[in-house]
Amino acid sequence: MPLPAPLDGAEAVVFDAYGTLLDVHSAVQRHAAAVGPQAQALSETWRQKQLEYSWVLSLCGHYAPFWTLTERALDFALAKHPQVDRAVRGDLLEAYRALDAYPEVPGTLDALRRMGLRTTILSNGDTAMLAAAVKAAGIETRLDAVLSVDPAGTFKTSARAYDLAPERLGVARERIAFLSSNRWDIAGAAAYGFAPVWVNRTGQPDEYPDLAPVRVIRSLDGLLA
């Protein structure tokens, strides 16, 4: 049976983790009552600064574990939203280690493996936080590898970070379909030579027209359609 169009010619499917397989806002949602009316704003600030810190460090030629950036970003978010009781900090960090997977994730991974495709995570997350995340989400047995950018010492969109997937899998980059909910990550994957599929979960407008995805889907269900 032929593979669906985005996977035609692919030997492996590589996923970003945070925001693509795992709901980054589920940590705050789990403690929304304790956080209060600023829950959504706090979660958005937390995510925005987490990513911003990774970009700035990469541009400066510096590196720190993604968990360190996650803690720093939460501290900034709590400072920006002083109405939120800082006593919730520990609970939020604990929840971030065990984020909810999106509901279609297990079934999609299973379907891809039945097609003979290898399934892998390539994430900015550090090794320890990724191990905790995939175990909590119940998807560790559905993945051939879970790759952190730690060995590269830099974050996506550096080519050194993307290099980790073809090197580990022994698959040419053009034979790898790469899925991310982050448009900047899709731009990086396109520049690198992956076949990028943008999981545009929140209906964001497109950008980076010179670094386009091969397909845009709203959830992982669309990959197999």
Results as ranks from 00 to 15, higher is better:
Asn124Pro: 08
Thr157Arg: 14
Ala73His: 02
Arg113His: 05
Ser158Leu: 05
Trp198Cys: 02
Trp46Lys: 06
Leu224His: 04
Asp16Tyr: 08
Ser181Trp: 04
Arg89Trp: 03
Leu223Tyr: 02
Glu11Ser: 13
Leu51Met: 07
Ala32Val: 08
Leu3Gly: 01
Tyr102Thr: 03
Leu93Met: 02
Pro65Glu: 05
Ala101Met: 07
Gln48Ala: 14
Tyr96His: 10
Thr20Asp: 03
Pro37Gln: 00
Ala189Cys: 08
Pro196Ser: 04
Glu174Ser: 15
Ala39Gln: 05
Lys80Phe: 14
Ala145Asn: 10
Leu211Lys: 11
Leu179Phe: 02
Asp16Met: 11
Gly222Ala: 01
Cys60Trp: 12
Ala5Ile: 08
Ala225Tyr: 03
Val146Asp: 02
Gly116Cys: 06
Val14Asn: 01
Ala133Thr: 08
Ala225Cys: 12
Gly188Cys: 11
Glu140Leu: 13
Ala33Thr: 13
Gln204Pro: 10
Leu22Pro: 13
Val84Lys: 03
Leu78Ile: 13
Ala5Met: 09
Ala177Val: 05
Arg114Tyr: 03
Leu122Tyr: 02
Glu11Asp: 09
Ser43Met: 11
Leu22Asn: 08
Tyr53Trp: 03
Ala64Met: 14
Ala33Lys: 13
Pro65Met: 04
Ala10Ser: 05
Asp206Met: 12
Phe66Cys: 06
Asp126Glu: 05
Val35Arg: 02
Arg142Gln: 13
Glu44Asp: 15
Leu57Arg: 12
Arg47Met: 04
Ala190Lys: 02
Ala33Gln: 13
Ser54Leu: 04
Thr68Arg: 14
Gly19Trp: 01
Leu122Ser: 06
Leu42Arg: 08
Ala137Ile: 01
Ala64Gly: 10
Ile217Trp: 01
Ala212Trp: 03
Trp198Thr: 04
Ser180Pro: 14
Glu140Trp: 14
Thr20His: 06
Thr68His: 15
Gly125Pro: 12
Leu117Asn: 05
Ser54Glu: 04
Trp67Arg: 03
Leu220Gly: 00
Leu143Gly: 10
Leu147Cys: 09
Ala190Pro: 03
Leu59Ala: 13
Val13Lys: 01
Met115Tyr: 05
Ile217Pro: 00
Ala225Gln: 10
Val134Asn: 07
Pro106Ser: 00
Arg175Pro: 06
Ala12Asp: 07
Glu44Gln: 14
Ala132Asp: 13
Leu164Gln: 13
Ala161Pro: 10
Arg86Gln: 14
Trp184His: 11
Thr70Lys: 02
Asp110Glu: 14
Leu92Ser: 05
Tyr192Met: 12
Pro166Ile: 06
Arg86Thr: 15
Ala161Met: 11
Val149Met: 07
Gly222Pro: 00
Gly19Ala: 04
Arg218Gly: 06
Asp221Arg: 00
Leu74Glu: 03
Leu211Ser: 10
Arg72Thr: 12
Ala177Glu: 03
Ala77Arg: 08
Phe178Thr: 03
Val13Ser: 01
Ala34Gly: 12
Val24Gln: 12
Arg114Glu: 11
Pro65Thr: 12
Arg201Ile: 06
